[in-house]
C-alpha cells in the first residue's frame, strides 16, 4: 500500500518537473501534476499521471488543485526570460509565489517545497566553499534572475503557516531538457558551434539527483529549511574544454569578459524581443556563471539515495536523450566510454 503523502507538482510539465514525476512514480507515489493552460503535456500524458490546471496567476485554479494535497512541490516560479526589467520581474515572481502560499495555507497543505537556485548562494570572502548558510544578506544587485530568486526565498523562509523547504539546485543537466535551457551550451558545443560564453564557476548537477532529493525531502521528518543540491564546482571554460574533447570538436574560444558577456546578452535580449527567436546567450546564464559560488553541497547530497551521479554519467544520459530527440545530430561524435577523458568521474 502506498503510504506516500498526496503530492502535487506545480510545473510538472517542465524539465525538472518530468524528472520529479518519474522519481515519485519510481517511489510508488502517483503525483497530481499541475500545469498552466498552455504548455506541452505530451510527456506527462504518456506517463498516465493525473493532470490538473494550476496557474500561479489564477487562485481559483490553485484552490482546486491543492484540495486534499499534503505536499506541494513548487517548480513553477516565475522565470525571467527578459532580464531588462528586474523590478517588474521581482514583483511578478513574489506576487505569484504569495498566491501559491496563500492557496496552500487555505487548502490545508502541510508542506511546500520551493525549488530555487544556487543564484542565492553567496560566494564567501574567505575563499572556502559556500554552503546553505551562505545567503546574500540583501537582494543582490546582479540582475533580474538573482533579484527574483532571492526575494522568493525570503518570502518562503518567512512563511509561518506552512512547513517550507527551499531547495537550491545547481545547473541541472539530464533528460527532458526539451527547451534546452541550461544545456544550451552543451548542445552548441556538441554541434561544434563554439558558443559565445562567459567564464566563472558552475556547479552542474544531474536533474534526476535533484528529483530524488526532492522526493526524500518531501517525507523527511525534520528537514532543513534550505538545501543546496549541486555537483562539484568547476570553471565553465574547463567544462567546455572537456566537452569539446568529448565530442571531438575544436576547443572553445576564449570566454568573454564579464562586462562584455553582460553587454552581449543584453543586446541579444533586445534583438529577440517580440520575435520567435531566443537569445543565443541569456542574461541569467551570464549572471549565474560570472557570480557563481564554489559550493560544498554535502548536506544536499545526503538526501540523494545512493549519492550524486558522476558528471560523466549525467553527460551520457543527456547525450542519449539529446540524440533521441535529435537535439544533437548523429554526425556529432558519440562519446567513447573507454576514453579516459570521458570515463573519469570529475571532469575538472
Amino acid at each position: 500500500m502506498d503510504e506516500s503523502p498526496t503530492t502535487l507538482v506545480l510545473g510538472a510539465a517542465g524539465f525538472l518537473g518530468v524528472n520529479l514525476v518519474d522519481a515519485l512514480l519510481a517511489r510508488g507515489s502517483r503525483p497530481r501534476c499541475g500545469h498552466r493552460a498552455r504548455t506541452n503535456l505530451i510527456p506527462l500524458r504518456r506517463r498516465g499521471v493525473p493532470l490538473v490546471l494550476a496557474d500561479t496567476a489564477e487562485p481559483p485554479s490553485l484552490a482546486a488543485a491543492f484540495s486534499g494535497v499534503e505536499v506541494v512541490f513548487h517548480l513553477a516560479g516565475h522565470y525571467p526570460r527578459d532580464g531588462r526589467t528586474p523590478e517588474e520581474t521581482r514583483a511578478r515572481a513574489v506576487s505569484e509565489l504569495s498566491t501559491v502560499l496563500d492557496a496552500a495555507a487555505h487548502a490545508g497543505v502541510r508542506r511546500v517545497v520551493l525549488v530555487s537556485s544556487t543564484a542565492t548562494v553567496a560566494p564567501r570572502d574567505d575563499g572556502r566553499p559556500s554552503t546553505e548558510a551562505d545567503v546574500f544578506p540583501e537582494e543582490p544587485a546582479i540582475g533580474a534572475y538573482h533579484a527574483a530568486k532571492w526575494s522568493m526565498e525570503q518570502l518562503v523562509l518567512d512563511e509561518d503557516r506552512l512547513e517550507t523547504i527551499v531547495v537550491c539546485p545547481g545547473a541541472c543537466l539530464g533528460p527532458w531538457d526539451l527547451r534546452v535551457g541550461t544545456s544550451a551550451l552543451l548542445v552548441a558545443t556538441a554541434r561544434g558551434l563554439d558558443p559565445v560564453h562567459p567564464d566563472g564557476v558552475v556547479s552542474p548537477v544531474d536533474v534526476r539527483d535533484v528529483a530524488r532529493a526532492l522526493t526524500t525531502l518531501s517525507t523527511s521528518s525534520a528537514p532543513p529549511r534550505r538545501v543546496v543540491v549541486a555537483g562539484e564546482s568547476l570553471r565553465l571554460q574547463r567544462l567546455l574544454e572537456q566537452l569539446s574533447a568529448r565530442y571531438g570538436v575544436a576547443p572553445p574560444g576564449a570566454p568573454l569578459s564579464d562586462v562584455a558577456a553582460r553587454a552581449f546578452a543584453d543586446r541579444e535580449e533586445e534583438r529577440v524581443a517580440g520575435t520567435a527567436s531566443r537569445a543565443s546567450l541569456a542574461r541569467e546564464i551570464v549572471d549565474l556563471v560570472v557570480h557563481g559560488a564554489v559550493i560544498d553541497a554535502q548536506l544536499g547530497a545526503s538526501f540523494v539515495p545512493g549519492g550524486l551521479t558522476p558528471l560523466s554519467e549525467t553527460l551520457d544520459a543527456f547525450d542519449a536523450f539529446a540524440r533521441r530527440m535529435r537535439l544533437i545530430p548523429e554526425r556529432s561524435a558519440s562519446p567513447d566510454p573507454k576514453d579516459p577523458k570521458h570515463a573519469q568521474h570529475d571532469l575538472r
Binding site: R38, T39, N40, R46, L178
Partner: peptide, 26 residues
C-alpha cells in the same frame, strides 16, 4: 518559437487523440 510549437503539438495530441511521443514531434 520552440515552446509555442510544443504547446501546439500538445494541443493537437489531446484534441485528436494522437498518443504522440516527443520523438515524433521534435
Amino acid at each position: 518559437d520552440s515552446v509555442a510549437s510544443m504547446e501546439l503539438l500538445s494541443m493537437l495530441d489531446e484534441s485528436l487523440g494522437l498518443e504522440l511521443e516527443m520523438e515524433d514531434v521534435l
